[in-house]
Write a protein that binds this DNA or RNA. Sequence first.
DNA 1: GCTTGTTAGTTACAAAATCAACTATTACAC
DNA 2: GTGTAATAGTTGATTTTGTAACTAACAAGC
Lengths: 143, 143
Amino acid sequence: MSDFELEQFLPYLLNQAAEASSLEFQQVYKDRYGMLRNEWRVLFHLGMYGQLTASEISFRAGLHKTKISRAVSKLEARRFLSRDRDVEDRRVEHLKLTANGRSAYIDLCAVAQRYDAALLEGFSTEDALTLKALLRTLAQRRR
Amino acid sequence: MSDFELEQFLPYLLNQAAEASSLEFQQVYKDRYGMLRNEWRVLFHLGMYGQLTASEISFRAGLHKTKISRAVSKLEARRFLSRDRDVEDRRVEHLKLTANGRSAYIDLCAVAQRYDAALLEGFSTEDALTLKALLRTLAQRRR
DNA sequence: GCTTGTTAGTTACAAAATCAACTATTACAC
DNA sequence: GTGTAATAGTTGATTTTGTAACTAACAAGC
């Protein structure tokens, strides 16, 4: 194919952009709290929505249950969250952040907000909104 | 932080969108040619630019040299590319696609073009252009 | 009650990514 | 030339992920 442009191919572009714009933030949660990507995501979901079960996080974040399971173990080991078995259904665990976890969440939220603003610097407000709306649409078609 | 929205956080959004929109295409190059993401990328760079060295691919694609090295080995083992040692500088290898590799490239290009169009279906031409331009800007801030 | 099916979450093993150390070759200083 | 540094690319050890099989608990039919 003569007229194909890799740099115009959406999945490629998205990957490049995602990787580039995750790098610095990743550095922060890794260096500051020893977290991995999935751990950060679980922490944020609990921080935003309060108490959740692993399945609920899995559904909301679009993460496979094994990823959740491992992320939860790590976060628990580092005292960022606590588990509570459901009394009605003893298969279910309710997860919530410890004080420690909450303070990490609050700290990282602030970092994230500043970081987000920095990434969008140079874009017009309208472009920024369009970008995020389109990305949300693309992300929705899932699994 | 009360007003933080994970779904508005650019790195998160980009990752979700990237993952969602890579899935189906990944399935194609995996099922049809047994390729991994890095192998597909190397194949496309060689398909688009002709003969390149590993370092050149590394620079253009923003991939670490170990990823290139392993992708090249796999592609060579499956007869998708051939290596040629440089006569002037015997550290350097010139890589290029075999007929086999080229035909895989041409096939995947066509798939990619159709897939790209399908992803953008429902977006206005203007939105599509804006999206790609912004993504390119974000991707540029790199490494 | 007992069997069958389903759901929540974990674990085991293989595949893949990472990071650092390595070899081979060239370049440059003296 | 000889020693030192730089570059191209590979390999190995460790971590992380992915897939599938697993355990434990519940639910529904009979």
